[in-house]
């Protein structure tokens, strides 16, 4: 591991000024520390915010919204009473399916949303690629790409690795960001670039900016949501395709709907047209199948991942069924 300075922050004020000159925030460090130990990255300065749970932890609910502090662990999200409503089930399920019980008890929401892509070319010590900044091209496109993107992979076919991101996209969440002395709120989708180009960073935070919390509006807390994923193993595996759905149903008719897909694009992949096609109609398997077809209409398979198109539709249909189920 290359030497680095570690600043351990005692309060939020300290964290605000600490992250300058190429410094990087570290929360649980689940992946960051591995990357350092494996020498895949060399970072001169880490700013540890792991102890700021008073400011950045916890799941609270008030008249306007549900607030998930950036240091909330995935385990807390999956188990907390404040996420127990049917509306938040997508988030609860997404957090509960991630990684292993051990990791979920340590990994934070902020780290999960802002984690580095898992592309095995990006992370290969001996292979350079355009997104890694050490090669001319995307190596996965013509290489081994069974786990790679079928959407939006213009010049880089990595997929976004966060389950929670997919879920939050359908919950109309907002990210609260500390930028200098000010805070601002942006729609959660704006936390990632619209197109996951090779040259772009994986998220839109500027250096020194810190994700403080994620807010979910009260209006959303009214509906139903669900998250489903397909993977190769039941224990500790990444999804090969995943889908999150939020619907509001009144008098047997879908009044509002949001759909997002995971593990299929360099960014969490919203499917607004497919969601729109549900509105004003009563839920049915035919409707779900047609929405799934619409969601995957523009999918483009690489050499080894055509299966994602069929599998992704099945997963989306499952999520729609679960969200619209009358229980």
């Amino acid at each position: 591991m290359n030497p680095f300075t570690l600043t351990i922050c005692k309060d939020l004020a300290e964290a605000r000024g600490a992250c300058v000159d190429g410094a990087v925030y570290k929360a649980a460090g689940i992946d960051l520390v591995d990357r350092l130990k494996e020498r895949k990255e060399s970072l001169p300065q880490l700013v540890d915010i792991g102890r700021l749970r008073k400011d950045l932890g916890g799941i609270t609910i008030d008249a306007q919204s549900l607030r998930l502090g950036a240091l909330t662990t995935l385990h807390e999200i999956a188990e907390h009473e404040n996420t127990a409503s049917r509306a938040l089930r997508a988030l609860r399920e997404a957090a509960g399916e991630a990684a292993t019980p051990q990791v979920r008890r340590r990994a934070t929401l902020g780290g999960n949303l802002l984690q580095r892509a898992r592309c095995w070319y990006l992370r290969s010590a001996g292979i350079g690629c355009s997104h890694g900044g050490d090669g001319p091209t995307c190596m996965a496109r013509e290489g081994e790409n069974r786990y790679h993107a079928i959407f939006g992979g213009f010049d880089c076919v990595r997929v976004h690795p966060s389950n929670c991101a997919t879920a939050l996209c359908v919950l109309g969440a907002e990210a609260e960001i500390q930028s200098g002395d000010a805070t601002r709120r942006i729609p959660i989708r704006a936390l990632w670039p619209e197109h996951g180009l090779a040259a772009l960073p994986e998220h839109t935070l500027e250096p020194g900016e810190l994700l403080i919390a994620v807010h979910i509006g009260r209006d959303v807390i009214e509906g139903n949501s669900a998250y489903r994923e397909a993977r190769e193993k039941a224990s500790f595996d990444w999804p090969t395709t995943s889908a999150a759905v939020h619907v509001a149903i009144e008098d047997g008719v879908i009044r509002a709907a949001r759909i997002a897909l995971g593990a299929v694009a360099p960014v969490p992949w919203p499917c607004d047209d497919a969601a729109k096609s549900l509105i004003g109609k009563p839920p049915s398997d035919e409707l779900f199948a047609s929405a799934a077809r619409a969601a995957f209409k523009d999918a483009q398979a690489l050499t080894h991942n055509a299966y994602k198109i069929e599998q992704g539709q099945a997963v989306l249909i499952d999520a729609l069924r679960a969200a619209c189920a009358e229980v």
């Binding site: 095995w120 070319y121 001996g126 292979i127 190596m139 290489g143 081994e144 069974r146």
Partner: peptide, 11 residues
């Protein structure tokens, strides 16, 4: 899983 172009194991 090997990259056939450069002989490295990817996983």
């Amino acid at each position: 899983v090997m990259d056939r172009r450069n002989g490295r194991m990817l996983n």
